[in-house]
Design a protein around this nucleic acid. Structure first.
Lengths: 155, 155
DNA sequence: CATTCTTTGACTAATGTTGACTAATATTAT
DNA sequence: ATAATATTAGTCAACATTAGTCAAAGAATG
């Protein structure tokens, strides 16, 4: 039987709520109090159990009236194409290769023409105004991978 | 439930009025009284929630008969608004302000939900993995401006 | 026993609230 | 007209209220 530690208990508590509603909004300190743990434990639970890979999206606000909101999202089926493309990118990619990946996404029907156009803008050398080529390629890889990961689900 | 702080409440109040009319004109002290806050809180609400990034323009007058007037501006048929938006971005912009701009584009029907989602990913701090804040904000400005300019035409 | 996962708390960051002081405009008195 | 006064809004910094990060210590696991 798993679920002996408090993080698992908190996870179950939140997922019970999420079984009925699409999202749950909490006050960090309240939940921490409820389970008698330090507030940052809530962050730990969220970081390890409510990731986008698990189908959850988290948004929060600090300050008075602050909150943490966990939302269930729908994972899509195009995942296999995305996985192999992400593998190709690695941690550095040229503009030319990036454009061809986006072209592939368009050809495969994963993105619309307009979405592809926007993605291209986001990876173009001319928008970055960075002179260091290595930095440029690394940044492009980060952005492209983030874009691809975003295509895995809809909010 | 989101929006537990008084600033959010005041924001909703004003936006409810703006849902019906193109503009709202208030007396600062009256609104402050209505919600039992100090007058300068109204300035805070306006400064954080009714910026040009959010699609609003504010004008005011002091002295007897003074007022604050909030006007909803239309991105679609007002070219100058897009220009002033780009001017606001300049060569540096925070993630928060950038998200506001993209949210406004979505609200105005300029971009689809999915396009907006992709744009947000392209300006998020977490995708860049840059520790230097100034560099991060400068890069974000470049990318956002490029994206906005791309929206000016169809391919 | 080594490794990974969990728990804790000190420090940081973001956002919201308040009030004293300033600035602009209008009104009234001289 | 001009000066004094009244009536508005603006700015800014201190303080309050939340959440986030990170690394060290402890517990569980294999």
């Amino acid at each position: 039987m798993e679920g002996q530690n408090i993080s698992d208990v908190i996870e179950r508590y939140l997922k019970t709520i999420l079984a009925d509603s699409e999202h749950v909004e909490i006050r960090r300190s309240e939940i921490a109090n409820l389970f008698d743990v330090v507030p940052s434990q809530i962050n730990y639970v969220i970081k390890t159990r409510f990731t986008i890979q698990n189908g959850y999206m988290v948004e929060s606000k600090r300050g008075g009236g602050g909150y943490i909101r966990i939302e269930k999202v729908n994972l899509l089926d195009d995942v296999s194409v995305l996985n192999s493309l992400i593998k190709v990118i690695g941690n550095s990619i040229s503009e030319r290769d990036a454009v061809s990946i986006i072209q592939t996404l368009y050809d495969e029907g994963v993105v619309s023409r307009r979405e592809a156009d926007l993605m291209v803008v986001a990876i173009e050398k001319s928008t970055y105004s960075i002179s260091d080529r290595q930095l440029e390629n690394a940044l492009r890889a980060n952005i492209l991978i983030s874009l691809l990961n975003r295509l895995r689900y809809e909010s």
